[in-house]
């Protein structure tokens, strides 16, 4: 195997190879179903199950409650989210103290966001401080959150602390809870389709160093012509 100058793979040859890839419509349908389930598109998943004559990999009702939990967290309604998680499967929080702490922290953040300082203090002392003693990691997070009170959302506060109030923090918490629920249902955390896109990005970038070949233009769904 000699150190290569780039080999050139012509359009026709490349298309032949694409054709030889062994993948069926049913395979692709299952990829799509996986996406609909993981991303929580319940009614689309139901329709797809009928139209494509494909069994759903999970109870589709679980999608709905998972989505409700996610939406509750994105709204900032942590109490509702916790109750719904426990309805779905109490073990999820019992066996995952870090996740439970994350939810409680989010609740504290929401108190502070709403300016309910007294509630925030009481909640921190009763619910969170004991957990902070359990692990240094929890304690650091608790301290960071409590710092929000000191700054009262003033713009002079350090970025890392202000971020706790950002929508990204809600998304992060919602994402962690979502992943934990999926795990409890023996589902992947990410849609396989996303993994496929990552693999293509990796593959095309790696191969570009060694070969010239037609790339995929995903917008058009067609191969780009070689120069």
């Amino acid at each position: 195997m000699q150190p290569a100058q780039k080999i050139v793979i012509r359009q026709e040859e490349w298309e032949r190879r694409l054709h030889e890839v062994n993948v069926s419509k049913n395979d692709l349908n299952r990829l799509v179903m996986d996406y609909l389930v993981i991303e929580g598109f319940k009614s689309a998943a139901e329709e797809f199950s009928r139209e494509a004559e494909l069994a759903a990999p999970v109870d589709l009702d679980s999608i709905e409650s998972r989505m409700n939990i996610r939406e509750a967290l994105q709204r900032g309604d942590v109490g509702e989210a916790i109750a719904r998680v426990n309805d779905l499967d109490p073990e999820i929080l019992d066996t995952n103290p870090a996740l439970y702490f994350r939810l409680q922290q989010q609740k504290l953040i929401e108190f502070i966001r709403q300016g309910k300082i007294a509630e925030a203090l009481e909640f921190a002392q009763v619910e969170l401080a004991p957990r902070g003693e359990e692990s240094p990691e929890f304690l650091a997070e608790l301290e960071k959150t409590m710092a929000l009170l000191a700054f009262e959302s003033s713009p002079s506060a350090p970025q890392s602390i202000l971020e706790l109030l950002s929508p990204a923090q809600r998304l992060k918490t919602a994402g962690e809870v979502n992943a934990a629920i999926l795990e409890s249902l023996s589902q992947g955390k990410d849609a396989k389709l996303v993994g496929l896109l990552k693999l293509l990005c990796w593959g095309e970038t790696m191969l570009e160093e060694k070969a010239e070949f037609p790339k995929l233009d995903l917008r058009e769904g067609m191969l780009t012509k070689l120069q």
């Binding site: 195997m1 290569a4 080999i7 793979i9 490349w14 190879r17 694409l18 054709h19 890839v21 993948v23 395979d27 692709l28 990829l31 799509v32 389709l193 496929l196 896109l197 693999l199 293509l200 593959g203 095309e204 790696m206 191969l207 060694k210 070969a211 070949f213 790339k215 995929l216 995903l218 917008r219 058009e220 769904g221 067609m222 191969l223």
Partner: peptide, 26 residues
């Protein structure tokens, strides 16, 4: 329009890239 859905070509393109990388020693 493309004769195949972009999703299908995505899968095939990825598989072809991975195979070719294997053949080239990655």
């Amino acid at each position: 329009k493309p004769a195949h859905p972009a999703l299908e070509t995505l899968y095939r393109q990825t598989a072809a890239c991975v195979t070719q990388l294997g053949l080239l020693g990655t």
